[in-house]
Design a binder for these strands. Structure first.
Length: 481
RNA sequence: GGCGAGUUGGCGGAGAGGUUACGCAGCGGAUUGCAAAUCCGUGUAGAUCGGUUCGAUUCCGAUACUCGCCUCCA
């Protein structure tokens, strides 16, 4: 289909934009670090989900939907979860199950496709233990006081991804160093669990895995010792991804682990880092509950290239809402829906716009792709708009073609009393009579009265329709009853 | 302190060593009895200072400022 397409991706490992060549075009493999499941996903969590969802969609478009494997994990063993269980008295599994349910619901609402596999860490403990054993055997890890630690000095490339040297990091370290570590930068592969903490039996006693080993183990099990893309937020670059690389490279010296590393920049809110202490912290669910649709959130997110900080602002939200309303209306007016899409497919008109794909394939240039959407939206016939509709669909901005009417409906009119309908209808009838008689002075007078009450009158064709505007004031109409 | 990113027109936000980004807002026009919608046109922006080049906003260097990670929250 798109054999001549050149996909370029910025590789954090080489710090360059490179032509993407999959190890196996029949099975393109991507791993993305998923959430620790102890609470609702906040807006910042949604950025990598959406960035890599678009990449997933693009890869499926280029290589075929059945030729892409996307793995995103759930970290369901973690001290934050343990703390949440301790403070609520709830069962850990109940917390993680519930949180995964929330996560799915929220990310579904954003139009994110479910990954091919969503492994839970607790279901892969055996694979982690195997990997840790291998690392001890090969001299890359050691046991100390019930812990198993990775020896960073055993891996010469340690620090290459994030551009740090072990010596520099030790010099700048602010954390207290556990006395049993041979090198201050050594990190935990396995740690002991006490009675009240979840644990699994192992050669090193009852305990639980360190944070980093799960991604290495699950990526190996599900994608192999070499795969194509590893993604995540750039906050994970150090130490998480650095440690993943060290573990995987040492445990599977013949594999390349991930060829391409991709990191999305962080999200800000009104120009500031989103944090609890600044009071600008909110979840995806908070936004959805406020009536901000998943499509709007998605369009705002894709409006900034993934490699740059993304600023969530009220103004962008409003602009995206207006843009989407316009786009959906264009499609609706031209009869788009499941039937038309089917007909376009049957007629061979359901094709990707090459320029749109080309822009997107240039390191996932979503802002550029959105610019192309604006151009494509100027089509005048269903055939001319097919590329636009296809592109919107590819970007995940059309959850369901049967829903277009609802999507195009955009804002709901504020509720108003039944008598208002009568009053306005009466006034409009009077205006219509005057217009028919070309008595425009009277017609305009009626419009002025309605405008003063915040009623927006729109003449389409021969008929007038109305809707309560933002300044709608029923009280001003009451006098006209 | 260590590592990294960014600085584009009123706002948002891209690509490309030499030709229109795009959107919103504004302005001019068409159309509409008015209004809305729509359509057409319109903006010589690229932090500062140097360098490379026939030519740089785009490459290189320095300066300033902003931001992120290294620390619970991504």
């Amino acid at each position: 289909m798109s054999d001549d397409l050149i996909l370029r991706l910025h590789n954090s490992r080489t710090r360059r934009r490179e032509v993407f060549e999959p190890l196996d075009p029949r099975n393109v493999r991507m791993y993305v670090c998923g959430p620790t499941v102890y609470d609702r996903a906040h807006l910042g969590n949604a950025r990598p989900v959406l960035v890599f969802d678009v990449l997933f969609r693009l890869l499926r478009h280029v290589y075929g939907a059945d030729h892409v494997t996307y793995v995103r994990n759930f970290t369901d063993v973690d001290d934050k979860i343990n703390a949440r269980a301790a403070e609520t008295g709830r069962d850990i599994r109940a917390i993680t199950d519930e949180t995964i349910g929330w996560y799915h619901a929220d990310m579904d609402a954003l139009g994110a496709l479910r990954p091919t596999h969503e492994p839970r860490a607790t279901e892969w403990i055996g694979a982690m233990k195997d990997m840790i054993s291998d690392l001890i055997k090969s001299g890359h890890a050691y046991e100390a006081e019930g812990h198993v630690l990775f020896a960073v000095e055993s891996y010469a490339e340690y620090g290459a991804l994030s551009g740090r040297s072990i010596d520099d990091m030790i010099a700048g370290a602010r954390v207290e160093v556990a006395p049993y570590k041979r090198n201050p930068m050594d990190f935990v592969l396995w740690k002991p669990s006490d009675e009240g903490t979840p644990g699994w039996d192992s050669l090193w006693g009852r305990g639980r895995p360190g944070w980093h080993i799960e991604c290495s183990a699950m990526a190996y099990e599900l994608l192999g010792e070499s795969f194509d893309i590893h993604g995540g937020g750039n906050d994970l670059m150090f130490p998480h991804h650095e440690n993943e690389i060290a573990q995987s490279a040492c445990a599977h010296p013949h594999g390349a682990f991930a060829n391409v590393w991709m990191h999305n920049e962080m999200l800000q809110v009104e120009g500031k880092k989103m944090s609890k202490s600044l009071g600008n912290f909110f979840t995806v669910r908070d936004l959805l509950d406020q009536g901000v649709s998943g499509e709007v959130i998605r369009l705002v997110m894709l409006g900034t290239h993934y490699g740059k900080p993304m600023d969530w602002t009220e103004r962008k939200r409003a602009e995206a809402e207006a843009t989407l309303a316009k786009w959906y209306q264009v499609l609706q007016v031209h009869g788009f829906g499941p039937d038309l899409v089917r007909a376009l497919k049957a007629g061979g008109d359901w094709q990707a716009d090459p320029e749109f794909i080309g822009v997107l394939a240039n390191d996932l240039n979503t802002p550029g792709a959105i610019a192309r959407l604006h151009v494509l939206a100027k089509g005048r016939t269903p055939q001319q708009l097919a590329g636009f509709a296809h592109a919107l669909d590819l970007l995940g901005l059309v959850p369901d073609w049967a829903d277009l009417v609802r999507l195009a409906g955009a804002t709901e009119a504020p509720a108003h009393a039944p008598w208002v309908d009568e009053v306005v209808a009466g006034l409009l009838a009077k205006r219509q009579t005057a217009r028919a008689a070309r008595d425009f002075a009277t017609a305009d007078q009626v419009r002025d009265v309605l405008t003063a009450a915040g009623v927006v009158v729109t003449d389409v064709g021969g008929a007038a329709s109305w809707a309560p505007g933002p300044d709608f004031d029923a009280f001003k109409l009451e006098a006209l009853k």
